[in-house]
Nucleic acid binder design. Sequence first.
DNA 1: CGCCTCTTTGAGCTCAATCAAGGTGTGTGG
DNA 2: CCACACACCTTGATTGAGCTCAAAGAGGCG
Lengths: 237, 237
Amino acid sequence: MTKSLKELGVLPELKTFDIFHPCSLEQIEQLCKNSTVCVTKHRESLFEFGNPAHYFCVVLSGAYKLSRPSAGGENSIVHFSAPGDVIAAFIMTQPQPTYPLNVISMGPSRALKIPRENYLETWHQMPDLIFRVQSLLSARMNALQNQKALTKAPLPSKVASFLVHLIEHQRSKNSSEQVQIPIPLTRKEIADSVGATVESVIRIMSEWSKKGLIQTNDQHITILNTKEIIRIKDSSL
Amino acid sequence: MTKSLKELGVLPELKTFDIFHPCSLEQIEQLCKNSTVCVTKHRESLFEFGNPAHYFCVVLSGAYKLSRPSAGGENSIVHFSAPGDVIAAFIMTQPQPTYPLNVISMGPSRALKIPRENYLETWHQMPDLIFRVQSLLSARMNALQNQKALTKAPLPSKVASFLVHLIEHQRSKNSSEQVQIPIPLTRKEIADSVGATVESVIRIMSEWSKKGLIQTNDQHITILNTKEIIRIKDSSL
DNA sequence: CGCCTCTTTGAGCTCAATCAAGGTGTGTGG
DNA sequence: CCACACACCTTGATTGAGCTCAAAGAGGCG
């Protein structure tokens, strides 16, 4: 039942990710010893807040949302993890770690669950690898701080900033218009990300749709006029 | 003019901090090679947002506030760094790092400026040390995520949560009442931390003063009734 | 003494939350 | 196959928490 990672062909898949790219397949195999591929369905939970954290994860395909439970069953979304992203690695160093977030699958996804010991032992031996993990973390930290700086900005700025953030990778090269956001998002998820209500987000985005700035079909959002969206994002300056 | 760290007696000072505690004085000396002690006055800047980051820091005494410039000269405060805290370490791994924050002295303070190369070379060799740095970072990340989960909470909850967070270390043992907040804070700083205006913060805290929950003299805030403050913090649940 | 920072209080207004209601599409179980 | 639940999207009306603006007092410092 449990096939080896090699049999499953996961190793080369891992090597395509930035973190593992400089590693040999043999190294990767070592690093991911005793790991299992976890297949999740839409809205299925990968890790649950407060549970003891025996594993950390590398996202293989699909996407996951990391959210924090808060007032009245509300969940505020902290981050979206795409393939190549590492989840919960940096809490592995704590003596008795528990997951600080809920991790929920968005659509069918796959993740590699790696035992905590690997991080403390094998990964620990590879300073360069640890530094690359740290970079991911540092980028997330940066994003969080960015958002914090926007707390007092009007809601449209927040939403615009959120969308721009999501297309940052691809935008770098393709500075032309017409960028599609890589993960399908509901309005509710956007609302939970920027700390607002669904209704407010809808009002703002409908407006933008009418003006031809964005376009949605089946939860896939496309930004038609990047320039204008960026202007809105910065309009509170 | 520039005395060695050994002459200044900084080495034993460093050893009292968690990160360096397991290290020998010789190791610490190695790790902090070519570093300088930087003495700052109240409101003086240690690092400035956007500048190229050739150094990272360990806070020796006093305190620093880390803030992010935002709309209209507003500064949103992201973190307060007390002695033992490491600043800007995790961006050292980037190829051409620039400071992602403003770092400003609160009262007279001292910090040890350590060259970037040390992190990439000497520190890099010590996985355990890197893990300890990662723990600090992870704690800060956690705090940020916590705050994010409170965005929709009413302002009093946010302020209460902020105060409780600041006394978390000492509270652990001394669960009795009467806890003083370790750093002097202006209302404006509190406002910038929770993402509100001075006026709103004042209104809330005056109320609390009247009710005998807190007490201020000369920017030193003392929580008189911890239980009630925690109740307010959680009241939005 | 004037300047600057910090605190305080009041009055009015605005943005986004809340409440309410209706529409669509998909899955699911009888 | 239909009915029902459920997730998601949309629009409108109302309301209130917190922002803005204004004005002023209280130290501290050169």
